[in-house]
């Protein structure tokens, strides 16, 4: 949207983001600021899935695999190395490589959307089982035990790059996480305007046509998936720093389900909606966790069911329709198409 030559769609979120980044520390006490930091981390995680699912059309049901890998990679690396610059990068690199490897097998094998969902889910499940059951002293990577179901307590936090004596305090962590959220959001917005981004969206719309035009859809899907995996890993790394603690629940089904629910509730095919979904539902998780009445699984299961059956487009698109009173979103079927009976006789 342009008004008098000004890109409102960039200015408004930009100004809001900066206002939150610098404004919240003035108004919030430390405890609330810590909560907001967690929401920002979860919003990054939501964006990573919003990108690969909502725009790339790749159904990743086991997104916690990459979140958990980022978390554990950081924890194990920082316990071994001490200074946090390399561990921070390793935490992004490990899930990125994992996503690339799994993505290679999935996309170059040309398995259908639904199979991709099941494969990723299985990946997360097995990682969870592995990490959960490696509790003995025999399971360690360098100096770091894997810790099994107990996880790893007392994970050292981030320090100013290359300055191990200067570690980040909770206030710094807030600026880092919120700042990274803004960077990731605008980074993805930018990416979606490039040729790569547009082809990725075109693949979501019609993979065959993309190939008839001459783009390698496998490569584009692999790249999309890898970027999403890396961003989820970044969120995992920040998450360990936030709590100074990592446990196998980062790999859990519930964690994967949560991300799916954030994106679904916010709106598949938008970036802003999933961020809102992440914040609202993370808040809800904290609220539910502090009482004994309703089980969290029960609540989130109900939310997922209700949204799939009744509000499949999510809240953002519906709100936008209400506000503008016209069909501007979604510009496509909400979910990825059912699998084409692909390439008979080819392989």
């Amino acid at each position: 949207m342009k008004i008098a030559g000004i890109r409102l769609d960039l200015i408004v979120p930009g100004v809001c983001g900066l206002a939150l980044l610098f404004g919240l520390p003035i108004f919030l006490d430390l405890f609330s600021l810590l909560q907001v930091t967690l929401y920002a981390i979860m919003a990054i995680l939501a964006l990573s899935l919003a990108f690969i699912w909502g725009y790339g059309g790749i159904l990743c049901l086991g997104h916690s695999a990459f979140f958990g890998l980022g978390a554990y990679a950081y924890a194990i690396a920082v316990i071994n190395i001490g200074e946090s610059t390399a561990p921070f990068l390793i935490a992004i690199l490990v899930p990125t490589l994992a996503a690339a490897a799994v993505g290679y097998f999935m996309f170059y094998g040309r398995i259908s959307d639904v199979y991709v969902g099941v494969m990723t889910l299985t990946l997360a499940l097995i990682l969870f089982n592995v990490v959960n059951s490696t509790s003995g002293a025999q399971y360690h990577i360098g100096k770091a035990p894997i810790g099994g179901y107990n996880g790893l307590p007392n994970v050292p936090g981030l320090n100013v790059p290359f300055d191990p004596d200067n570690s980040l305090d909770p206030g710094d962590m807030y600026y880092l996480c919120m700042g990274l959220l803004i960077v990731v959001y605008f980074g993805l917005r930018w990416l979606l305007t490039t040729r790569f981004g547009r082809v990725a969206v075109a693949i979501r719309e019609n993979e065959k046509r993309v190939e008839f035009i001459g783009y390698d859809s496998r490569l584009h899907k692999l790249a999309t998936f890898t970027i999403g995996g890396g961003l989820a890993g970044l969120a995992g790394c920040l998450f360990v720093n936030w709590g100074a603690y990592v446990s196998p629940t980062t790999f859990s089904m519930m964690q994967s389900a949560q991300v799916i629910i954030w994106v679904l509730v916010g709106g598949v095919g938008t970036l802003f909606g999933p961020m809102i979904g992440a914040v609202a539902l993370s808040w809800l998780t904290v609220e539910v966790g502090s009482q004994q009445l309703i089980d969290a699984n029960l609540l989130f299961g109900a939310i997922l069911l209700v949204f799939v059956l009744l509000v499949p487009r999510g809240i953002m698109p519906v709100l936008i329709d209400r506000v503008w009173g016209r069909i501007s979103l979604p510009r496509r079927p909400v979910f990825t198409a059912p699998p084409v009976a692909a390439r008979e006789g080819k392989r």
Binding site: R198, E205, K208, R209, V210, R332, P333
Partner: peptide, 16 residues
């Protein structure tokens, strides 16, 4: 027909 239904005419042609 194999086109990009969720994109505008201009966006469709831009991809190609």
């Amino acid at each position: 027909p194999n086109v990009f239904d969720g994109l505008t005419v201009r966006e469709n042609l831009w991809i190609a």
